Amino acid sequence: MSATDSIFLRPATPDDAEGIAIVRIDSWRKTYRGIIPDTYLDSMEVEDSMVLWRRVLTAASVTTSVFVAELDGDVVGFAAGKMLDEEKFGLNAELAAIYLEPEIQRAGIGRSLVRMVAAAHQAQGAHGLIAWVIARNKIARQFYEKLGAELLVEQSFNWDGMDLVEAGYGWRDLNIFKPH
């Protein structure tokens, strides 16, 4: 029995804000070291991120969804999505975040979390999903491509004063996430 056999996927609650913040910051520090300045990564604070996630999770918005992967009571991954006010590239929902601790990657947990986000937004009328990734994040790009996303665009953007390049991936048919 592997650690991933004990993973429980569920909708996030406000009590998950700290766990989500920790996973996000850990993931950024591991993934973006060498891509984003160390000073930025090292200055990321769990408390700041936790405040943001608590606000998201207490908003009770039907246009936002957040799901967590839990192992032994700890959040070890999460995915978040939202409906877009305006379509982008003909897509009306966004996979806004997906982060997993390394020990549960490549076990189907990310795919399941994306499936949950897609289903939640399809129920709200979404017909397509867009996801953004820093272009140099090859692992995330491969993940999206493996899930059938098409590369829509690569473009410059500014994140907290840093000039970066992002890649936009999209799924035009959310039914690909439904079990067959």
Rank of each mutant, 00 (worst) to 15 (best):
115 R>I: 06
92 N>P: 02
67 F>R: 03
37 P>F: 02
95 L>K: 07
120 A>K: 06
31 T>A: 01
59 A>W: 09
143 F>Y: 04
108 G>S: 12
73 G>S: 04
54 R>P: 05
95 L>V: 09
134 I>W: 13
103 E>R: 15
106 R>A: 12
33 R>E: 13
75 V>H: 01
92 N>M: 12
109 I>M: 09
57 L>P: 15
73 G>Y: 06
120 A>Y: 02
79 A>G: 14
54 R>M: 11
141 R>H: 02
104 I>Q: 05
40 Y>V: 13
91 L>Y: 07
38 D>M: 07
103 E>A: 07
122 Q>I: 00
52 L>Y: 09
113 L>P: 01
50 M>G: 04
95 L>H: 05
41 L>G: 06
113 L>W: 01
114 V>Y: 10
114 V>T: 15
90 G>T: 11
89 F>D: 15
86 E>T: 14
115 R>G: 05
100 L>Y: 11
130 I>V: 15
83 M>W: 08
46 V>L: 03
78 F>G: 02
146 K>H: 15
133 V>K: 05
83 M>F: 04
74 D>A: 11
135 A>L: 07
110 G>I: 08
59 A>Q: 14
146 K>G: 07
119 A>R: 14
44 M>N: 01
39 T>D: 15
32 Y>Q: 13
109 I>L: 08
58 T>S: 12
36 I>P: 15
126 A>P: 06
125 G>E: 02
98 I>E: 00
130 I>N: 13
139 I>L: 12
105 Q>E: 08
56 V>R: 10
86 E>Y: 08
106 R>M: 09
118 A>C: 01
56 V>H: 13
116 M>W: 11
74 D>M: 12
137 N>G: 07
79 A>S: 12
